[in-house]
Design a protein around this nucleic acid. Structure first.
Lengths: 212, 212
DNA sequence: ATTTAAAAATAACAGTGTTAACTTAACTAC
DNA sequence: GTAGTTAAGTTAACACTGTTATTTTTAAAT
């Protein structure tokens, strides 16, 4: 029974209702459980109606993930207030890992799933906006630490430092998310692995071990 | 037209023919392109006949991946002959990265895709057999380097070292495979990132920088 | 020659993303 | 107030997927 003429804000409400339904399935049962029919049922529409709000499934999922990526950026933003550049860097990393491991499905979708390459021009995330772009935040945090003389003098490119540390932390999160239950591997505790990784990064890139 | 009574070795031949067809699609078009019908057509059978040789698609893909994991282990095996423990360790890592980046689809399937957790009891790979089990090789390489006194004395658990270095290298490979074309990120060159990661691992975990 | 059983093919099912066609109801214009 | 327009939604349908049940073909065994 279609009542008509929805205001732009009502349409937005439906859009977010669809996204919320998708997110629910997404978070609790993984992306495979997100079928257009299941989302539609959850939101009380017919499956084909979703196509009035999202051009296809890919865009629906991307919209959900983008929205949560922005949430990640806003969560990380709190660490940007820390005045000491080294502490800011460390806290930033810790928040990142925490996000990844408490939101494994989002993390998987962001960084572990093949997408059509993301075109910043069409993303809902504003690139380089430190409120939204977590990568820009990372570059900023590392660059300011670099300017503060935290890293070994042989390291001259803060972007390269950032990408390397990110890769290391990503590897930790990715293996944990994907292979934590694999009986093949006798994993050391997650805490031990996080600590070891942090220490490797610090001893590897920083001037001197600055933590007791 | 079914000729009858296939010898066990003939059946094995069909099995590997199916796997080869699957691998072809798999490598060149990613796992999404591997449909039972497509594999069947490539091998000249009907789609349902594949089920005479593999109980389902998951097992077919797993068989393909397992076979290539063994190939990885055999490729890595060549590095195990290097007598100097440090050089052995470095070469092992380099071979690993090279495998990952030249076989991105296999690598993605092994380490970046959600599987039902792999039960060693039912795998075609022999666990702890250094001819087949790349993880066992890694543990061995790191442990022998550890016994040779390569690492900082504060590091007392070679398994933890191995898992951490693996995670770091995995992160490098995984980001490269998944996000190399992402316009969001201004990637430094792959070579630079590999070198930076190796240096971070070495300075982070080893007694002294042993490379010029 | 007839039976038997392996090896394969065909038909079919339930489920997927998605498009086309149709319905319903509210707003606009006379 | 009735007719027309069109947004908002639904139902039907298509092409595809993995998979199972049924049926065919064919080589060997009796």
């Amino acid at each position: 029974m279609p009542p008509k003429v929805k205001s732009e804000i009502e349409k937005q409400a439906v859009r977010t209702a669809i996204m919320d339904a998708a997110r629910e399935l997404f978070i609790h049962q993984g992306v495979e459980a997100v079928t257009m029919r299941a989302v539609a049922q959850r939101v009380g529409y017919s499956a084909t109606s979703l196509y009035l709000y999202f051009s296809d499934k890919e865009q629906l999922i991307r919209a959900v993930v983008d929205a949560d990526v922005i949430k990640l950026a806003q969560s990380l933003k709190s660490t940007l207030d820390i005045s000491d550049p080294l502490q800011r860097f460390l806290q930033f990393g810790q928040h990142y890992v925490q996000f990844a491991l408490t939101n494994p499905n989002h993390y998987r979708m962001m960084f572990m799933t093949p997408h059509p390459p993301c075109d910043p021009a069409f993303s809902s995330i504003e690139q380089d906006n430190p409120e939204q772009d977590a990568y820009a935040q990372l570059i900023g945090v590392v660059t300011s630490a670099w300017h503060a003389g935290v890293f070994k003098p042989s390291l001259t490119d803060p972007v390269l430092i950032a990408q390397t540390v990110w890769a290391a932390m990503h590897g930790l999160c990715a293996l944990q998310i994907n292979l934590a239950d694999d009986a093949w591997i006798n994993w050391r505790s997650l805490e031990a692995r996080v600590q070891a990784m942090v220490e490797m990064c610090m001893h590897g890139f920083m001037k001197e071990p600055q933590h007791e």
